[in-house]
Simulated assay, not measured.
Amino acid sequence: MRYARASQVSWDKARWPNFRAHEFACKCGGRFCKGEYWHDPDFLDRLQAMRNVLGPLVINSGHRCALWNAAVDGAPRSRHKTIAADISLMGHDRHAVLNAARSAGFNGLGLAQTFLHVDRRSIPATWYYGQKSRNLWKS
């Protein structure tokens, strides 16, 4: 469900104790929206499962309003326009993060140099963000 602002959602702190809605809200800084947020409890449950295994996770990007997605050169059909997350790899073993994402049931996996993109989709997909990313993930 889409909200005009992350502050409008009733956040279940017991269910998702390690995250807050604003982490997943659009980061356009008010240029195009007012912190638009897409709420998906199943998605958040899966992220919390990853957090329970890996420890602290930093969300670089969550939902993006359509104009912000275009401004950051996001794919026209990006899952970020509904709900997806780019998780920072800093402080984590990249393969451990990937394994945790798969175990949590994420099946849209974008392997970048500094982050892992996760989403849920009807047809599973895994991709690299360029040759440097491919080389890092293959090592």
Rank of each mutant, 00 (worst) to 15 (best):
G35E: 08
E36L: 08
E36W: 00
W38M: 06
W38V: 13
D42K: 14
F43P: 06
L44D: 07
D45C: 01
R46M: 12
L47K: 05
L47N: 03
L47A: 05
A49L: 09
A49H: 09
A49D: 08
R51W: 14
G55D: 13
P56L: 05
P56M: 01
L57N: 08
L57D: 10
L57C: 06
V58G: 10
I59D: 08
I59H: 09
N60G: 04
N60E: 13
G62T: 10
G62K: 07
G62Y: 04
R64Y: 11
R64I: 04
R64Q: 10
C65E: 02
N69L: 12
A71P: 00
A71R: 00
D73F: 13
G74Q: 08
G74A: 13
P76I: 11
R79C: 10
K81R: 15
T82Y: 09
I83C: 09
I83N: 02
A84D: 03
A85M: 09
D86V: 07
I87V: 03
I87W: 05
I87P: 04
S88W: 03
L89E: 03
D93W: 01
D93V: 00
D93F: 04
D93M: 01
R94Q: 12
R94N: 09
H95Y: 13
V97T: 02
L98A: 01
N99G: 14
A100P: 00
R102C: 10
G105A: 02
G105V: 06
F106R: 01
N107A: 03
L109S: 03
G110H: 04
G110K: 05
L111F: 05
L111N: 10
Q113I: 11
L116K: 14
H117F: 07
H117R: 07
D119N: 00
D119G: 03
R120N: 07
R121E: 09
A125S: 15
T126A: 14
G130F: 01
K132M: 10
K132I: 11
K132P: 13
S133D: 10
S133N: 11
R134I: 08
L136A: 11
L136C: 06
